[in-house]
């Protein structure tokens, strides 16, 4: 085996995982793409991609850094979710929070559902 081949095998294949949950009378869909050292998570009720935030840990701060790369900056939901997931998983996290409803109690339930999936199926993240 040559040097390059062993490097190729140092990361696994990208895996895709879907799950959904009825939260407050609304079916919320989750789509996870697991990559090397991080994952992409999309949350939505219809198939739109309305924003994208990226977060990752930084050694100078206990809270991970987070930035919005796409979408409305006044919507803080994608950033805060990305930040909390980055803290929990210690990975680079891409989050698209594409739900029309962003009230805090709903967001909390959505986040709890993600945390539950993280515990049940850590291999998908």
């Amino acid at each position: 085996m040559t040097e390059t081949q062993s490097v190729e095998q140092s990361f696994g294949a990208i895996s895709v995982h879907n799950f959904s949950e009825k939260i407050m009378e609304q079916t919320v869909h989750f789509h996870v793409m697991k990559m090397s050292g991080g994952f992409f998570l999309w949350v939505g009720s219809s198939a739109v991609l309305s924003n994208l935030a990226v977060s990752m840990s930084c050694k100078y701060d206990s809270m991970p850094l987070s930035t919005l790369v796409m979408g409305d900056p006044s919507n803080t939901a994608p950033n805060s979710l990305a930040q909390r997931l980055a803290k929990k998983t210690k990975k680079q996290v891409f989050v698209s929070y594409s739900l029309p409803m962003t009230d805090s109690s709903h967001t909390l339930l959505v986040e709890n559902r993600i945390k539950k999936e993280l515990e049940l199926h850590p291999e998908h993240f």
């Binding site: 879907n18 959904s20 949950e21 009825k22 939260i23 407050m24 079916t27 869909h29 789509h31 999309w42 939505g44 219809s46 198939a47 339930l109 709890n112 559902r113 539950k116």
Partner: peptide, 13 residues
């Protein structure tokens, strides 16, 4: 409690 119930809707993505 509701979120403890698993549902299996088809993925829309």
């Amino acid at each position: 409690c509701r979120i403890n119930k698993m549902s299996s809707a088809e993925p829309i993505i």
